[in-house]
């Protein structure tokens, strides 16, 4: 915004800056705090914001290494955080791949092919997208219970079940990719058809290579969404070694077994990579959000 305001501009800038800094301090307070907590010994607040005698206790435990206390006793890691992180990554990776494949082919058809009920399917998908899976959890639980009777690795308490449950959320991605496909000149594929390409080849050799940017965005969006997904995972996964991070982490703050310090280290350890991915891809994600949002 170009505001043409020559007089007292300098003061205004400084007011703005100070306001912004105060706001930032407020916003960043939880993050700074959690870093401080992760270096504090013990799991209970000790009365100072900057740890007086920093200890790596929580970090050892977060990495799964037993910690030897000064009095000689050994604290074993309570929860397998790294395993949970690994589970989360596995689930997110495979479900994002699936989502990407399904939404890309779907978007291709919606953008390029003409068939009956095309419009209806699109509208229906956009409306269905608004219904959160949360509400149908009983049905989803029953569904996977039944699937598990026939295919055990897709049953309750398997990572496979969570992975495929996330396929339901592809409508938004279809919409995003479809929008991108529509910006690609249709005559490219027509040229390919004249060159002898089947529709599949035109899709595979012409359209796909040109759509890599949007596919990356969709992959990242799907990845981040499934890492953070809580409700479905929380009812489908039970045993300690199968939990994803989103479901497992809350166990740290159980009132009966309050592990504030351990949680801090585990949260930083597992949250940092995801945050970095997000910030690194910020530009594309923001672009995707605004275009997808404004259109859909």
């Amino acid at each position: 915004m170009a505001m043409v305001q020559p007089r007292n501009l300098k003061y205004r800038v400084w007011y703005a800056r100070i306001a912004l800094w105060l706001f930032l301090a407020l916003i960043l307070f939880p993050f700074l705090m959690i870093i401080s907590v992760s270096f504090r010994s013990g799991n209970f607040a000790t009365g100072s914001l900057i740890p007086e005698n920093p200890s790596l206790e929580h970090w050892y435990l977060a990495f799964g290494i037993p910690w030897e206390n000064p009095d000689g006793s050994v604290t074993e890691p309570f929860f397998p955080v790294l395993l949970w992180l690994w589970n989360s990554i596995k689930v997110a990776f495979f479900s994002s791949i699936l989502v990407l494949m399904l939404s890309t082919t779907g978007a291709y058809a919606f953008a390029r092919l003409r068939f009956k009920f095309r419009e209806h399917m699109l509208t229906a998908m956009m409306i269905l997208q608004m219904f959160p899976a949360v509400l149908a959890l009983v049905a989803i639980y029953t569904l996977f219970d039944k699937i598990g009777d026939y295919i055990p690795w897709l049953g309750i308490n398997s990572l496979g079940s969570v992975t495929i449950a996330y396929i339901g959320g592809i409508a938004l991605h279809i919409w995003l990719i479809k929008g991108y496909f529509e910006t690609i000149d249709n005559s490219l594929e027509e040229a390919a058809a004249i060159d002898g390409a089947t529709p599949w080849q035109a899709f595979r050799y012409v359209l796909l290579p040109l759509s890599v940017p949007i596919l990356a965005v969709v992959f990242i969006l799907a990845f981040i969404a499934s890492i953070g997904e809580y409700p479905v995972a929380s009812i489908l996964l039970h045993s300690m070694d199968k939990l994803t991070l989103a479901v497992g982490s809350q166990q740290y703050l159980n009132p009966q077994n309050y592990l504030w310090g351990d949680f801090a280290a585990a949260a930083i350890l597992s949250g940092l990579p995801i945050t970095i991915i997000f910030l690194a891809c910020q530009r594309w994600i923001v672009g995707g959000l605004t275009s997808g949002g404004v259109k859909g």
Binding site: F131, V138, I140
Partner: peptide, 23 residues
């Protein structure tokens, strides 16, 4: 043409529509 959309619709149907109706 439906071959391209079928897998996606299958996912949407199984994990959104069916649970909805079942609920």
């Amino acid at each position: 043409c439906y071959r391209y959309v079928f897998p996606g619709l299958l996912g949407v149907f199984t994990f959104i529509v069916f649970p909805l109706l079942y609920t």
